[in-house]
Design a protein around this nucleic acid. Structure first.
Length: 425
RNA sequence: GGAGGGUUGGCUGAGUGGUUGAAAGCGGCGGUCUUGAAAACCGUUGACGGCGCGAGCCGUCCGGGGGUUCGAAUCCCUCACCCUCCGCCA
């Protein structure tokens, strides 16, 4: 969330940001925060004066009793003060709770380099790599897989419901190979591998920004837990409520996990095959960096994800998300889309974002200059995350791009050792 | 699941109702000494919020929440986590 002090000093900037992000309902939240803040500061003036009086009187009572003097009158007097203090404290607590809940409803402010836009149509293509294959005669991945049994959508429907594909045989091996390939690549670039819990509590989901505003996107299970919609949630919360050593930044983590998303309201060709599913695998990158380094880190991470697509020989393009399409928590976000020749459309396989301090303030993740024992004041870190990469659409593009006349798929060389074959037949 | 013990500042660890924001030690920072360093010695050293140009003043914080009291780190309730023992499971 944005910090209260920032909100007080930059209310207009935040109003513009809210409008640019197409979240007008947050304007009321901002007003509510500013009002509650003002009321609270007034209240605290009275409250603290009263507390000071009580503290002084209590000391005096203690002193008198020690001298064996009578303090009955003062005690009676303080009884009234104590009741008033209690009343004001309750009012203060209620204002603070209001403040906090509305604060959580205010989105992050886009970076100045982010273009204004109302929807996905206003995103800007900032680079394209590789030559798109002509779609003539190319089959979509679901037809290819159907013939060879690499994944079984019907079985998933039986087991669970639509959007839960069952990978099998060479398809399952491809999943495992891709995971190992991605993780190895990231490991080489200094990312520490994490195998996190797949269930998180509400505090974790709130810290990374899934709650309270995107509740409907997560599966909630009994015990008050949520299935992670991305390992960003698990991995970023590893340092919740922590003071890091600023000299040890950046911290780079990666994780291979399933992700669970309700994706309510999607239909039609958007969801054919592996285009959009409720459970999918993804390798995620997460970084904790010093504030002044976060935009360099964003470029670096995006480059890393692009490197994976290049290693797989898949044509892709990079999009800079406009203000209206970038999401609640982000300050700047790139999407990578891979070319799907069998469908003749672009498929989003990665999304890399800089949250600046937005998550860090909810996480209370700070870093102290000069080490944990140092004397410097801790300050909020910046957090970033990005997919490297999401599996189903990567697999779709791989199958379609490398398909042969007979419906088999010749894998790119980078995967041969990982999948244990150069051909899915 | 049952019984007991514990959770205090960056760390170890005192403190069981009244100048305790908290002893002591370690660590950190500054200094003396030294060619330099170590050792020794001296000083200093929590966070957050509010007010003030400033020196400074006020408030809150001893795992979380609630209660008793004029006053709570200290008493009561509750929750979480850790440790020990018993049971159960792998």
């Amino acid at each position: 969330m944005l910090e209260l002090r920032y909100l007080r000093d930059h209310a207009e900037t935040v109003r513009r940001a809210i409008r640019a992000k197409q979240l007008p309902e947050a304007l009321a939240s901002l007003d509510a925060v500013l009002l509650a803040d003002e009321q609270r500061r007034l209240l605290r003036g009275d409250l603290e004066a009263l507390q000071a009086r009580r503290n002084a009187a209590s000391r005096e009572i203690g002193a008198r009793k020690q001298r064996g003097e009578d303090a009955e009158e003062l005690i009676r007097e303080m009884g009234e003060v104590a009741a008033e203090v209690k009343r004001l404290e309750e009012r203060d607590a209620s204002l603070e709770a209001q403040l906090r809940s509305h604060l959580l409803e205010i989105p992050n402010v886009p970076h100045e380099s982010v273009p204004y836009g109302e929807s996905e149509h206003d995103n800007v293509v900032v680079g394209e790599h590789g030559e798109r294959l002509d779609g003539a005669g190319m089959r979509p991945h679901w037809e290819l897989a159907e013939g060879r049994g690499w994944f079984d959508l019907q079985a998933g429907v039986t087991l669970t419901g639509a959007g839960f594909p069952v990978f099998r045989g060479a398809g399952a091996r491809l999943v495992r190979g891709l995971a190992a390939f991605f993780l190895d690549q990231l490991g080489r670039q200094g990312y520490e591998e994490i195998a996190p819990p797949l269930l998180v509590n509400a505090a974790s989901a709130t810290a990374t920004g899934q709650l309270p505003d995107k509740e409907g996107q997560m599966y909630e299970v009994s015990g008050g837990f949520y299935l992670i919609p991305t390992s960003e949630v698990s991995v970023t919360n590893v340092h919740r409520d922590a003071i890091l050593d600023e000299d040890e930044l950046p911290l780079r983590y990666c994780a291979f996990t399933p992700c669970f998303r309700r994706e309510a309201g999607s239909y039609g060709k958007e969801v054919r095959g592996l285009n959009r599913v409720h459970q999918f695998d993804k390798v995620e990158m997460v970084q904790f960096v010093r504030p002044e380094d976060s935009y360099d880190a964003l470029e670096e991470m995006t480059g890393t994800a692009e490197g994976l697509l290049e290693a797989l020989g898949l044509p892709y393009r990079r999009l800079l998300m406009c203000t209206g399409d970038m999401g609640f928590t982000q300050a700047k976000k790139y999407d990578l889309e891979v070319w799907s020749p069998g469908q003749e459309r672009w498929l989003e396989v990665s999304s890399i974002s800089n949250m600046e301090a937005f998550q860090a303030s909810r996480l209370a993740t700070r870093a102290r200059p000069g080490g944990v024992d140092g004397r410097g004041r801790p300050r909020l870190v910046h957090t970033l995350n990005g997919s490297a990469l999401a599996f189903p659409r990567t697999i779709a593009a791989l199958l379609e791009t490398y398909q042969r006349e007979d419906g088999s798929v010749a894998l790119p060389e980078a995967l041969h050792a990982y999948v244990g074959t150069d051909l899915l037949a």
